[in-house]
């Protein structure tokens, strides 16, 4: 099912009609060929109109789009001979985080990512990509394997945040997130993180300590969701739009703030409008950055990773 956001709605009748023709009628019939052409023209024009100047709030909506590719979609398209690993060997398997090994660009790498799920059933099963401590502990297990097997790590970030629940707190949500970051600072293998959708706070950062941090054009990365921010600051969750502006959470904002190293271009309208192009762009960027860091000696890599994060922050130093 194709899903439309409120500001995309104008596209719906045109695209539905286009699909209808392609599916049920003879496209070689000149009558329909003409209609297809005109429809495509209209869609292209409308796309430009809708998508050329997206606001931070619209980008937030796109980053959460139901049709947006998820971690396992990237893995499925970019990795060969991959397999998933399960469980933290301590408590349970958390389906909100997936991970395993596979061949990327002829190189064996570990992959770790949040997995949101596509339909309602899968979303509920995966808790909408909101991990419990065991999810981060599974991630750490895979990082540890990658480190011992000397394989690079690619992490895919796409979560509203770590799950706020009784069980999560009881089993040490804060400890799990802190330890995962801590471990990533210890590793001597190359790490690249890509924010593919929502980078929600500590739950995202827990698998985001990397040598290179990339972000898809319409993804977001923030200390708090715009809704949460509005609820706390103004006691009014409906002012999320305004909060999204202030938080500076878009890929281009974060590139300017020097938090991310590259913004990966998305097809017009967003990743959900053309998966293939999204995968190609992501693959290219990943290959380039991985190649660059693969040549760095392991100890230096670790040192540089620390230096990278150490530079982050803005303050004045009064003399």
């Amino acid at each position: 099912m194709k899903h439309y956001l409120d500001f995309e709605m104008k596209l719906k009748p045109l695209e539905t009609r286009l699909e209808e023709i392609k599916r049920f009628y003879d496209v070689n019939d000149p009558h329909y060929a003409k209609e297809i052409k005109s429809l495509e023209k209209k869609i292209a024009k409308l796309e430009k109109e809708i998508y050329s100047d997206l606001s931070p709030w619209q980008k937030t909506q796109i980053s959460r789009h139901l049709n947006r590719p998820r971690t396992l979609d990237y893995v499925d398209h970019l990795f060969k001979d991959y397999f998933e690993l399960h469980g933290d060997r301590k408590y349970k398997d958390d389906p909100a985080i997936v991970g395993g090994f596979g061949k990327f660009n002829n190189l064996t790498v570990a992959f770790i990512g949040h997995q949101k799920g596509r339909d309602i059933k899968e979303m509920a099963q995966r808790n909408f990509g909101m991990a419990h401590p065991e999810g981060y502990r599974k991630a750490m297990r895979i990082m540890d394997l990658a480190s011992r097997w000397k394989k690079p790590i690619i992490t895919f970030i796409d979560t509203p945040g770590a799950y706020p629940g009784v069980g999560a707190e009881e089993r040490g949500q804060a400890e799990a997130i802190a330890s995962s970051m801590y471990l990533m600072f210890s590793l001597c293998v190359p790490i690249v993180s890509v924010v593919i959708g929502e980078g929600g706070s500590g739950g995202a950062l827990a698998i985001g300590i990397a040598d290179r941090i990339l972000m898809l054009e319409n993804s977001i990365y923030s200390v708090i969701s715009p809704e949460g921010c509005a609820a706390i600051l103004w006691r009014d969750g409906t002012r999320a739009k305004q909060a999204a502006e202030y938080l500076k959470l878009t890929a281009s904002d974060l590139y300017q703030l020097k938090v991310v190293d590259e913004v990966i271009k998305e097809p017009l309208g967003g990743a959900h409008r053309n998966w293939k192009e999204t995968f190609t762009n992501t693959e290219k960027a990943l290959v380039r950055h991985l190649e660059e860091i693969l040549s760095v000696p392991p100890e230096e890599l670790k040192e540089k990773r620390y230096e990278k994060f150490k530079r982050m922050g803005f303050f004045l130093e009064e003399k």
Binding site: A178, M181, Y182, F185, S186, S201, G202, L205, G208, I209, Y221, S222, V223, I224, C229, I232, L233, Y246, L247, K248, L249, L254, L257, V259, R305, Y306, F309, K310, M312, G313, F314
Partner: peptide, 20 residues
């Protein structure tokens, strides 16, 4: 919140220093 993403990144920064 008033420092947005930079506040989040401080978690990473101090964790790196604690690690060392």
């Amino acid at each position: 919140m008033q420092e947005g993403i930079m506040s989040l990144m401080q978690m990473a920064k101090v964790t790196g220093a604690i690690n060392r």
